[in-house]
Design a protein around this nucleic acid. Structure first.
Lengths: 200, 200, 200, 200
DNA sequence: GATGAATGAGGGTTCATTCAT
DNA sequence: CATGAATGAACCCTCATTCAT
């Protein structure tokens, strides 16, 4: 039915993974298509059989990351349990993904740099807008559920998203920073409802 | 016998300002030396009379920003009043600087991208380490001063610094985001001591 | 699966030959990589697939000439016949090579100019030292073989080598000068042993 | 009568001397006008008050050398004593000049390289033609005067001139070569008439 | 499909030369 | 006269992209 379809997709993934490793190492600006091909163990020209141009590699890397985040957000929004708990789970999951794939996380730096101006395939503004929207919704629900936040949900969401991204940023520059260990403080400070439960 | 007189430092600043505008507009990677020269209203070759190469423009832009932050941090540490108050002032000042110079702030995205790996002139790891250290100190002092944070100061500082950078990040992608309006929520959430005073 | 097949060494030689023609015409300093590429009938960038930079073209040209000289010297030293005869043959061969490849000979002028200071790949001092050494050896042998030279072999060798290079030099500036016709006078004056045989 | 004339000429000489030192050090191709100005202790623009462009510096350097040679040749031709003796004196003087001004001699390498093609101000072909002509004349006179050279004067002259230039060439690459010590062997081999007198 | 030789637009950088002071 | 800041033509070299095999 789909004789070679899997192969093609798998090969594309292999190349993308190679690209991510190279970008993480040298940065996107200093990474040549040839470096990516070499890392993937294929010929330079073959990259073009799977990606239309150099930028598409970066876009695909971001898309992969964005897709994961979107899935986690989706899951958090679709959940039915305690909103604060779902929010906490979301934050932990997002950080866990980045911790688990440092190379991919590092590419974020390049994506941010290139994504300036919201050029279509890398619409950072939209991405963060949705991210904040989802979290604001969870925060609002959590507020309804009992805990009393004194901060307006949308602003609160921006701060929460910012804190996550900002902690990741610091960790990207300094791997000795214990990102995993920052999650609890972050949650404690920014999701008071949960914090209460954990710190009687 | 009478060489043309030029204020080298002033001219250098002019060129740097032009570079910052260009980088903010197109991103560092897409900015040509010629664009910078045109923006500064001078010839391409003249840029090299003040900067040894293209990278130095980016480094100088970052240095300018880092110097301002360092000065604000210095001021906060050297202050004698209420630690929480000084911390709040620091946060407000840092954000105010970025709000006042959006172009310069935008260049941060490029600096982050290029600064990966901590190449000497753009030592992001060191920069954030000091930033966190100063804030941790203020947080610790604030804790002594009365208010009782339950979070370990260094982690708290990382979250606070992260929140600032992360909010700025979002604002850089989406100028419709009200960064100024995020400062109060941010302070309220992350400097409880102050928050208490303001939200009885 | 079937990459284009190219004989790299052959292509390199083609480009080098083109470079030699161009250098001979305009001089190395005034020759652009693009001129060389055009002369070779290829694109500018292709030159860099075979030579790492412009200087390498000059070095390769000299290396080609030096290799020939070295082979001739080797041959003369390894020979077993009459030393004076072998020396005469060496001189005739060296001049014949230059006569046969005027363009290559002309590049010598650029090599001499650039080779000042003995930068590694163009070690003129070493080249001439060996050249003199070999000739001194042959001269010494010739002296033993009978004819009585009154001149110390090493100095004699320097004068002989100098005369060859100096005659070539004059011919390079003035192709109407009959270099081939200078070989006999040169030999007669500088290899007395042979001269005797020829001028009873 | 000539109020500032001496100053102007003297200044020009100073700059030329500085240029010669710089060219000798780095080679003409790698020497910038600014290097010459710095060596002369003047401003870059001032060089242009005495030389119309960069090439003129090289031409002037060669002209200085050529003028000395011409004077020596003139003197030798105009002399009245023994032709062989005058020839020997000429050779000794020419070498002495170069030995005394190694920097100027080194510039010869650049002059040879640039002078290719006989561009007007640096007419190497003509220079060597006259040089050979004068020497051929002296050789012919010497032959008449008694000694019996078997070699045709013009070819003999080319070999003699070549030997001088070629010995200088080797010395330029290798200052450990004793150029002064080569003069006697050179004379002995190439001016037989004199040689006889000295080696009974 | 896969490859890598070939290409040439592009951009960083240098430096001879000019000219206002 | 002297200067050195300014200029921009020139040129080296890189590398994304193409395409014949």
């Amino acid at each position: 039915m789909a004789p070679r379809r899997v192969d093609r997709a798998a090969r594309r993934e292999e190349i993308l993974a190679a690209a991510v490793r190279v970008f993480a190492r040298r940065g996107f600006a200093a990474s040549r298509i040839e470096d990516v091909a070499a890392e993937a163990g294929i010929g330079k020209g073959s990259v073009y059989l799977y990606f239309s141009d150099r930028d598409e590699l970066l876009e695909a890397a971001f898309a992969a990351l964005a897709a994961r985040s979107a899935a986690l957000i989706e899951e958090a929004l679709a959940g039915t349990g305690d909103p604060a708990e779902r929010l906490e789970h979301l934050v932990r999951s997002v950080v866990a993904v980045l911790l688990g794939e440092r190379d991919l996380a590092r590419v974020l730096l390049d994506v941010w740099s290139v994504g300036r101006g919201g050029r279509p395939p890398v619409d950072m503004a939209g991405f963060y807008r949705e991210y904040r929207g989802a979290i604001a919704m969870l925060l609002a629900d959590a507020a309804d559920s009992g805990a009393g936040p004194t901060v307006e949900p949308v602003a609160h969401a921006a701060v929460l998203v910012g804190a996550i991204e900002g902690c990741v940023l610091q960790w990207l520059f300094d791997s000795s920073l214990d990102l995993a260990g920052l999650v609890d403080p972050l949650l404690q400070l920014l999701i008071p409802a949960r914090a209460k439960g954990r710190n009687p």
